[in-house]
């Protein structure tokens, strides 16, 4: 084995390649067992559960969020469907209301028109009755005027008063013609 001339701190070789020196094996095995045992303990007890837990939490969270998104989408779809249904119902009911209103208004107008016509007819009848009575009254006056006129004519022509009963009869006879 080459000797080191530049570094004085070299441990004197006990001979042979260091890895094959059996007398060092006990120490290496002991400390390897302690160190690796410690690493395994920390790994199994703390590291693996923690990182595994983090990854599992994340996977759970992602799948949960996806499921929630799916549920929300289904909810939104249902809402759209019910909205469309409500819209169709509202449209149908608005049409029903419009038809009903139209019918009601038509009925009211008809009733009003009929009432008006009845009133007009009544007014017409009353007017006709008035006209009739007026004519009758007028005709009554004509008879008395005729009787008086005939009396006056007879008095002028004959110079004497005429029998009133006979005059009235004569006037009636003429009026009846």
């Amino acid at each position: 084995m080459a000797t080191n001339t530049t570094q004085g701190t070299q441990v004197p070789s006990k001979g042979g390649f260091p890895a094959f020196r059996v007398e060092t094996y006990g120490s290496q095995l002991l400390w390897l067992a302690i160190a690796f045992g410690l690493l395994y303990f920390v790994m199994a007890r703390f590291i693996a559960p923690r990182i595994g837990g983090i990854l599992e939490d994340r996977a759970t969270r992602i799948s949960g969020d996806l499921a929630a998104a799916q549920a929300m989408k289904a909810e939104a779809d249902a809402a759209t469907l019910s909205y469309e249904k409500a819209l169709a119902e509202a449209r149908a009911s608005s049409q029903a209301i419009a038809a009903e209103t139209r019918a009601k208004i038509t009925a009211e107008a008809d009733a009003e028109r009929k009432a008006l016509e009845a009133k007009l007819a009544a007014d017409l009848a009353a007017a006709e009755a008035q006209i009739g009575s007026a004519r009758a009254a007028a005709m009554g006056n004509v008879r008395s005027i005729a009787v008086e006129t005939a009396e006056a004519i007879v008095e002028r022509l004959a110079g004497t008063g005429a029998d009133a009963a006979r005059l009235e009869a004569a006037v009636d006879a003429v009026l009846k013609r």
Partner: peptide, 16 residues
């Protein structure tokens, strides 16, 4: 037996 705490043991604990 020699069970000395060596530079190897120190490095094992550094690794851990």
């Amino acid at each position: 037996g020699d069970f000395s705490f060596t530079n190897s043991a120190l490095h094992m604990f550094i690794i851990v």
